[in-house]
C-alpha cells in the first residue's frame, strides 16, 4: 500500500473546486472544467479525487466500492472522513467507470423535515455529448438543455427516476469525465 499526496494547496484548491461544483449544480447538465487536480490513488480518476477531497470531511460518510483499499486509506488520511460499508447511510457514494450500479432507491433520501440529509452520487463516466441524450428543464435552465452522458450503467435512468419519485426527498449527482464535471440535482425534470 502506498499513500499518495492530495491537493498541492489543500485550502485554495478545495475552495476553487467547491466553487465549480456550486456552478455545476446551479446550471444542471452543463459541463464545466474543474480547475485543479490532486494526485489520485489507484482506482479513482483525478477528477473524482478532486470532488471527494473537496466534499468529504470528518462529518460525512463515504461509500466506496470493494477493491479500492488504497483509495480508502488515502481518503481517510487526507479528508478524515468515515468510510461506511452500508450504502444506505452514506452521504457520498463513489462509482468508478464500469462498476456495478448499486440499488439507487436504497440510498439515503433525507426526511420530510430534512430533505438535505441525503446521498450525493459521484459517478465516473466516459464523456459528455451535447448533441444527444437526456433533456433537462426546471430550476437553472433558461431553456431545456440536452446532454448525453456516455458510459452510464444501462438501468441508471430508470433507477434515478425511482430514487427521486418522492420530491423533495431524493438524491443528487455529479458526473465527472476527464477534466469536466456535470451536476444533476433532484430538481431537474428529465425527459429520457
Amino acid at each position: 500500500m502506498m499513500l499518495t499526496a492530495a491537493f498541492a494547496q489543500p485550502v485554495d484548491d478545495a475552495q476553487a473546486t467547491f466553487r465549480t461544483l456550486l456552478s455545476a449544480l446551479s446550471e444542471p447538465l452543463l459541463p464545466r472544467a474543474l480547475p485543479v487536480f490532486p494526485d489520485a490513488p489507484a482506482g479513482v480518476s483525478p477528477a473524482a479525487a478532486a470532488l471527494l477531497l473537496t466534499l468529504a470531511d470528518a462529518d460525512t460518510a463515504v461509500w466506496l466500492p470493494d477493491g479500492l483499499a488504497d483509495a480508502a486509506a488515502w481518503l481517510r488520511f487526507h479528508a478524515g472522513c468515515v468510510l461506511v460499508s452500508d450504502i444506505a447511510v452514506a452521504d457520498f457514494v463513489y462509482l468508478p467507470q464500469r462498476s456495478a450500479l448499486p440499488d439507487l432507491p436504497t440510498l439515503k433520501r433525507g426526511s420530510a423535515d430534512y430533505p438535505d440529509r441525503s446521498a450525493t452520487l459521484i459517478v465516473d463516466v466516459a464523456g459528455f455529448d451535447r448533441a444527444a441524450g437526456v433533456t433537462g428543464s426546471g430550476p437553472g435552465f433558461a431553456a431545456p438543455r440536452r446532454l448525453g452522458i456516455q458510459g452510464l450503467a444501462g438501468d441508471f435512468w430508470p433507477q434515478w427516476t425511482r430514487a427521486n419519485c418522492a420530491f423533495p426527498l431524493g438524491i443528487d449527482a455529479f458526473f465527472v469525465a476527464r477534466d469536466a464535471v456535470v451536476g444533476l440535482p433532484r430538481t431537474t425534470r428529465l425527459e429520457l
Binding site: L3, T4, A5, A6, P10, F77, H78
Partner: peptide, 8 residues
C-alpha cells in the same frame, strides 16, 4: 521525500 501533507 514525497510530502503527503505539507506543514499545516
Amino acid at each position: 521525500c514525497r510530502w503527503l501533507r505539507r506543514p499545516q
